[in-house]
Design a binder for these strands. Sequence first.
DNA 1: GCGACAG
DNA 2: ATCTTGTCGC
Length: 249
Amino acid sequence: MPISPVNSQFIPNASLSRSEMEELQRSLASIATFDDTPETPSPTALTDPIIIGVDQAFCDEQVISAVVAFRDGEIIERTYAVSPIELPYIPGLLAFREGGPICDALDTLTCTPDLALFDGSGRIHYRQAGLATHIGVIYDLPSVGVAKSLLCGTPQAPTDRRPVGWRTPIRADEQVDAQIGTTIGYAYQSKQYRPSATTSVNPLYVSPGHRVSAETATELVAALCTAYKLPRPTQEADRYAAEVKQTLR
DNA sequence: GCGACAG
DNA sequence: ATCTTGTCGC
């Protein structure tokens, strides 16, 4: 059975004003769940749940939103949607640029995912409403945000030159709409840094999207990071989006 | 005015 | 995100 929007009032509308977008984010953040639920997949039993990775590629005025579904480490479905770009990139409003296209792609998925991984932040966001949280709430689906750089918040410890598996909490600071000190995610070293000093590998910034805790989100990403820096679902979605992009040229 | 800023 | 060749290193 396919998934469908549960909280459709949050489906991104690119024609809203900036303040209206921010207000909608505060509203959806208030109903987001940054804790594990009975339906949250267990990081130590990842053979049964269906996990999807979502990522985008851009081509002129269009966005290719790709979704790759996994079960027991195998790809069971791939789908995508091509949508018009309706908004430029604005830090803090990424969901209004990529969210619509992502919903277009998710609505063509035929399987029923138990968890979604997104390229971008979840709770690590000024209003605790990053892309992963936004889409997770719309479908009421457990979701995790995996960003390659930090949008806001402060790492508890310096993140440079850390060994694989190392992590440190990302704490809310004055620019985050949360009690200062709240753990809103983790920096996670998924790949070894270059001992050569001249080149280094930055950590991933993992945060809860919806219905998952920061700790479980990080454990899930750790379990899904195999050969690459990015977790498999996201890595494959990235590759698939690029593959589709070539087709459109 | 200055600095910061997911993709 | 995207524009882009070679090159250093495991």
